[in-house]
Nucleic acid binder design. Structure first.
Lengths: 221, 221
DNA sequence: ACAAATCTGTTGTAATTGCAACAAAGGAGG
DNA sequence: CCTCCTTTGTTGCAATTACAACAGATTTGT
């Protein structure tokens, strides 16, 4: 890992609260290695025994799941600073259920977190901080997935939209709020058809349930 | 917390690998308190500032999410040994987004985990073990949610079924396998209508894609 | 300013779903 | 053996969705 890498790494949630020299030390404890991948190159294969967390340094990595018949589904997209495969790396006795593929030329760092988790942390005071950060990263991811699940368990497009919009409204503590997605991205997030979603939005507008312009929405009670 | 509680607690994933006296010590560090709830009594209210993880000692606790209009949705069910609200308790600066209600008369233990996470762990050697266990619990939950998400992002009932069945088949490393749900529970898990799912299963059987009898399924490539 | 590309909304149709109602099969308990 | 209750499968219908195709609006690059 070079200096440029470390400049990026130190801004990530996993290493927050650490100084550069602490980070360099930690990377040693973690046997951190960096690797570059070409676009479309596979980074992790399903079935691999996995001991390392991945962190995207630059580029874009897609997390895919393959079913019995070989159909691939994108289940996540990791950008710079994001970790992936952390659920597997932190769980004993499971093999990787996903694959990771570079969506663009990308640089990825791998860290053997289990070393820090399972060996005595007192050997290195920074370990404690790292484990806490890891806990925080996992917990946040949990909350995000929980929220997505509540939307996806709604049956109709309208219900999914209302579930999402009302939670955004609550989060931003206002009936009027901007969302961070365009229509296609919102449809992907809610796992519905974009055009069907678009007409559903219009219908809800006509019925006086919501109003919107571009990415700004308003809930009308 | 009484001795009967501790007998239950020591078998849970969060306290695995700890002896009874270690657990008693830890419960002190965590300011653990037990509380009993009547059926339908609310345990946690949305908006509460949350510092404690809940663990079900006995009974059954439903985790609910309420939307803008006050509609409640069950997003989880916690049985004895299960923890809840751990995502919130481990994340700084968020208020509770869910509510917890006793589905039966229940006993719940609350633990202030942030004490163990944020204060210097060297003060108590067992803290390290607890944080690791917590990490493991969160990671497993992550994997479970990830899997459910991959099923729910499928558009049609057939795709959801195939996604679920193929992942069970992979997990049990056999084209023939038993599932832990009856039809209604499976429909709830996949968030589809039971009768529609039932006819879809029959259709898939008629098309030679799968065979099944009761809870035993077989994928016929 | 212009052209090209992207984003958004609309519409029609075929396919799929949710829902309600009902029948058949099995289990539990008297 | 009989009754009650639960589980599962089936069917018809109304509602909803996915999909494709297209047009207008907006953005981007030159």
């Amino acid at each position: 890992m070079n200096n440029k890498d470390i400049n990026i790494i130190k801004k990530t949630p996993l290493f927050s609260g650490m100084e550069e020299d602490e980070i360099e030390h930690m990377l040693g404890c973690l046997s951190a290695v960096g690797r570059n991948y070409r676009k479309n190159e596979t980074i992790l294969y399903p079935g691999d025994p996995i001991n390392s967390i991945g962190m995207v340094i630059s580029g874009r990595v897609l997390i895919l799941k393959e079913d019995f018949w070989g159909n691939r589904n994108i289940i996540n997209e990791a950008l710079h600073g994001d970790v992936f495969a952390e659920g597997y790396a932190c769980t004993q006795g499971v093999e990787l259920g996903i694959s990771a593929v570079a969506a663009e030329d990308s640089r990825v760092m791998f860290m053997e977190v289990r070393r820090v988790i399972t060996t005595c942390s007192t050997a290195c005071a920074y370990h404690v901080r790292l484990v806490r950060n890891l806990l925080s990263v996992l917990a946040r991811k949990n909350l995000l997935m929980d929220e997505k699940l509540t939307h996806l368990t709604q049956r109709t497009t309208r219900e999914k939209l209302l579930s999402y919009l009302s939670s955004e409204s609550k989060r931003q503590v206002s009936a009027s709020f901007e969302i961070p997605y365009n229509r296609q991205q919102l449809a992907d997030y809610l796992s519905v058809d974009r055009s069907a979603m678009s007409s559903e939005l219009s219908r809800m507008r006509d019925e006086g349930i919501i109003s919107f312009e571009k990415n700004r929405f308003r809930l009308l009670i």
